[in-house]
Protein backbone atom coordinates (compact mmCIF):
# COMPACT_ATOMS: atom_id res chain seq x y z
CA UNK A 1 0.00 0.00 0.00
CA UNK A 2 1.31 3.41 -0.97
CA UNK A 3 1.39 6.30 1.45
CA UNK A 4 -0.82 9.07 0.02
CA UNK A 5 0.93 12.17 -1.28
CA UNK A 6 -0.86 14.49 1.14
CA UNK A 7 0.63 12.67 4.14
CA UNK A 8 4.11 13.00 2.69
CA UNK A 9 3.61 16.68 1.84
CA UNK A 10 2.32 17.32 5.38
CA UNK A 11 5.40 15.66 6.83
CA UNK A 12 7.68 17.56 4.46
CA UNK A 13 5.91 20.83 5.24
CA UNK A 14 6.27 20.17 8.97
CA UNK A 15 9.99 19.48 8.57
CA UNK A 16 10.34 22.60 6.44
CA UNK A 17 8.83 24.79 9.17
CA UNK A 18 10.95 23.12 11.86
CA UNK A 19 13.95 23.99 9.69
CA UNK A 20 12.85 27.61 9.29
CA UNK A 21 12.22 27.84 13.04
CA UNK A 22 15.66 26.48 13.79
CA UNK A 23 17.39 28.74 11.24
CA UNK A 24 15.63 31.88 12.40
CA UNK A 25 15.72 31.50 16.19
CA UNK A 26 19.06 29.86 17.01
CA UNK A 27 21.97 32.07 18.05
CA UNK A 28 24.68 29.76 16.76
CA UNK A 29 25.91 29.70 13.17
CA UNK A 30 26.26 25.91 13.12
CA UNK A 31 22.66 25.50 14.30
CA UNK A 32 21.45 28.04 11.72
CA UNK A 33 23.11 26.00 8.98
CA UNK A 34 21.63 22.84 10.46
CA UNK A 35 18.17 24.39 10.24
CA UNK A 36 18.70 25.19 6.59
CA UNK A 37 19.90 21.62 5.98
CA UNK A 38 16.61 20.41 7.49
CA UNK A 39 14.76 22.66 5.04
CA UNK A 40 16.71 21.13 2.14
CA UNK A 41 15.94 17.63 3.36
CA UNK A 42 12.25 18.47 3.67
CA UNK A 43 12.34 19.48 0.00
CA UNK A 44 14.17 16.26 -0.92
CA UNK A 45 11.53 14.25 0.95
CA UNK A 46 8.76 16.04 -0.93
CA UNK A 47 10.54 15.24 -4.20
CA UNK A 48 10.81 11.54 -3.33
CA UNK A 49 7.17 11.43 -2.25
CA UNK A 50 6.04 13.12 -5.44
CA UNK A 51 8.14 10.73 -7.46
CA UNK A 52 6.18 7.87 -5.85
CA UNK A 53 2.91 9.60 -6.59
CA UNK A 54 3.70 10.11 -10.29
CA UNK A 55 5.56 6.79 -10.66
CA UNK A 56 8.66 8.50 -12.12
CA UNK A 57 12.35 8.37 -11.30
CA UNK A 58 12.95 12.11 -11.69
CA UNK A 59 12.08 13.01 -8.12
CA UNK A 60 14.55 10.42 -6.83
CA UNK A 61 17.24 11.88 -9.08
CA UNK A 62 16.57 15.36 -7.70
CA UNK A 63 16.99 14.02 -4.16
CA UNK A 64 20.47 12.78 -5.09
CA UNK A 65 21.34 16.19 -6.55
CA UNK A 66 20.10 17.85 -3.38
CA UNK A 67 22.44 15.68 -1.29
CA UNK A 68 25.43 16.70 -3.41
CA UNK A 69 24.51 20.38 -3.35
CA UNK A 70 23.92 20.33 0.40
CA UNK A 71 27.41 18.88 0.86
CA UNK A 72 28.93 21.66 -1.27
CA UNK A 73 26.96 24.23 0.69
CA UNK A 74 28.19 22.87 4.02
CA UNK A 75 31.80 22.96 2.85
CA UNK A 76 31.56 26.61 1.80
CA UNK A 77 29.62 27.48 4.94
CA UNK A 78 31.92 25.71 7.39
CA UNK A 79 34.97 27.32 5.77
CA UNK A 80 33.35 30.70 6.28
CA UNK A 81 32.38 29.83 9.86
CA UNK A 82 35.96 28.81 10.65
CA UNK A 83 37.16 32.15 9.24
CA UNK A 84 34.68 33.93 11.46
CA UNK A 85 35.51 31.91 14.56
CA UNK A 86 39.24 32.61 14.14
CA UNK A 87 38.58 36.30 13.91
CA UNK A 88 35.80 36.87 16.45
CA UNK A 89 36.07 33.85 18.77
CA UNK A 90 32.30 33.51 18.69
CA UNK A 91 29.65 31.73 16.64
CA UNK A 92 26.86 34.15 17.49
CA UNK A 93 25.89 35.93 14.26
CA UNK A 94 24.75 38.99 16.23
CA UNK A 95 28.23 39.47 17.69
CA UNK A 96 29.98 39.41 14.31
CA UNK A 97 30.15 43.19 13.89
Amino acid sequence: MNVPLTHLLTLAGGLFFIGIWCAVTRRNLIMVMLGIEIMLNAAALAFVGASLRWQQMEGQAVALFVLAIAAAEVSVGLALIICIYRRYRTLDPAKVQ
Binding site: M33, I36, A46, F47, R53, G77, P93
Partner: peptide
Protein backbone atom coordinates in the same frame (compact mmCIF):
# COMPACT_ATOMS: atom_id res chain seq x y z
CA UNK B 1 29.42 40.61 4.22
CA UNK B 2 30.08 37.04 3.05
CA UNK B 3 28.35 35.63 6.14
CA UNK B 4 25.26 37.72 5.58
CA UNK B 5 25.24 36.93 1.85
CA UNK B 6 25.71 33.22 2.55
CA UNK B 7 22.98 32.92 5.19
CA UNK B 8 20.36 34.82 3.20
CA UNK B 9 21.46 33.01 0.04
CA UNK B 10 21.14 29.46 1.35
CA UNK B 11 17.90 30.35 3.14
CA UNK B 12 16.33 31.62 -0.07
CA UNK B 13 17.67 28.69 -2.08
CA UNK B 14 16.17 26.22 0.43
CA UNK B 15 12.84 28.01 0.06
CA UNK B 16 13.19 27.84 -3.71
CA UNK B 17 13.98 24.12 -3.60
CA UNK B 18 10.88 23.47 -1.52
CA UNK B 19 8.90 25.44 -4.07
CA UNK B 20 10.32 23.27 -6.84
CA UNK B 21 9.38 20.17 -4.86
CA UNK B 22 5.79 21.38 -4.46
CA UNK B 23 5.65 22.24 -8.15
CA UNK B 24 6.76 18.72 -8.99
CA UNK B 25 4.35 17.21 -6.48
Amino acid sequence: AALRYFLIGIFSSAIMLFGLALLYA
